[in-house]
């Protein structure tokens, strides 16, 4: 009987901590309840003579996964306190009822205690003789060598994907640099907003990583010069972008049709500049 009593106590802790994960406003508290839940499962693994996995459970789940949860929680810092009434509504009560029905069905099925499965040969005696880890290793490196190798592929997918998603982009997201052709403008650069930089191309006359072109007051040869420079750009990253770049032309600028045609050919989109003076 002491075994059963012990089981029931740990099971109760396990269920209560599982409920604690859900019915809790603070994400940090939920993570701590999750830790308790994982810990109780490790206890069960030891009771079931799966010591290797019991240790792995503590290392992987408690050591890595819960820490990762806490880390991300602190990184994005959005401990959003959901109010209880937002999730105890009719729809969710229905879901809970459905879940209870499912649970009853599964529960009665598993409670019959008649197991039809084929018995293997990893008996307690074998485990006692060779040790848990050896038995698992023997199985892992013979019968299950293919799934073991596939874990490597899976981890590669994870690494590649996480690096792609979490990596900072090469350039700041909101930063935009505009090349301006305006012969009435004397300054070199202008910073109308924190994320926007306007550069006077007529003064600089070189190429740089701009995101947009604005032609406010310029002659046809000046524009032709820009286009020629862009066409002969050797930087492959920039070259790939011109075809999608937007070029805004002030209708008052009176460029010849040929020049506009040339611009259309070079840039992705040529549009009339509206809202002059208003920063987009």
């Amino acid at each position: 009987m002491p075994g059963q009593i012990f089981f029931l106590i740990v099971a109760a802790i396990s269920v209560i901590s599982a409920l604690g994960v859900i019915f809790n406003r603070s994400v940090v508290h939920s993570a701590l309840f999750l830790l308790v839940n994982f810990g109780t499962l490790a206890v069960f693994y030891f009771m079931l003579n799966a010591q290797f996995l019991g240790v792995a459970q503590i290392l992987v789940y408690a050591g890595a996964i819960v820490v990762l949860f806490l880390f991300v929680e602190m990184l994005i810092g959005s401990d959003l306190g959901e109010k209880v009434d937002t999730w105890l509504n009719g729809r969710n009560l229905l879901l809970i009822a459905l879940g209870l029905v499912l649970l009853t069905v599964v529960g009665t099925a598993v409670f019959e205690n008649t197991i039809f499965g084929a018995a293997g040969n990893t008996t307690v005696e074998v485990v006692d003789e060779f040790g848990q880890t050896q038995v698992i290793a023997a199985s892992l490196f013979t019968d299950f060598v293919l799934p073991f190798q596939l874990v490597a592929v899976l981890l590669s997918v994870g690494v590649v994907g996480v690096v792609w998603l979490a990596q900072h982009q090469q350039r700041q997201r909101f930063r935009r640099i505009i090349a301006v052709l305006d012969s009435t403008w004397a300054e070199e650069t202008q910073r109308p907003g924190p994320d926007l930089l306007r550069v006077n191309w007529l003064r600089r006359k070189t190429l740089f990583d701009f995101d947009q072109v604005e032609i406010i007051q310029a002659t046809d040869p000046q524009v032709a010069e820009l286009v020629a420079m862009v066409e002969h750009d050797t930087d492959s990253w920039r070259r790939s972008r011109y075809r999608q770049m937007r070029c805004l032309v002030d209708p008052d600028c009176k460029l010849s049709e040929d020049t506009v045609q040339m611009l259309r050919h070079t840039f992705g989109e040529v549009k009339n500049l509206v809202n002059k003076g208003v920063v987009a």
């Binding site: 799934p147 899976l154 997918v157 994907g161 792609w164 998603l165 982009q169």
Partner: peptide
């Protein structure tokens, strides 16, 4: 076990591909 590993390799790669456009 291979069905499961294949399913996960496919799914995890597709989750990331679906979110591939970070902009």
């Amino acid at each position: 076990i291979i069905v499961f590993m294949g399913l996960e390799i496919m799914s995890i790669a597709l989750y990331i591909l679906a979110a591939f456009n970070r902009q």
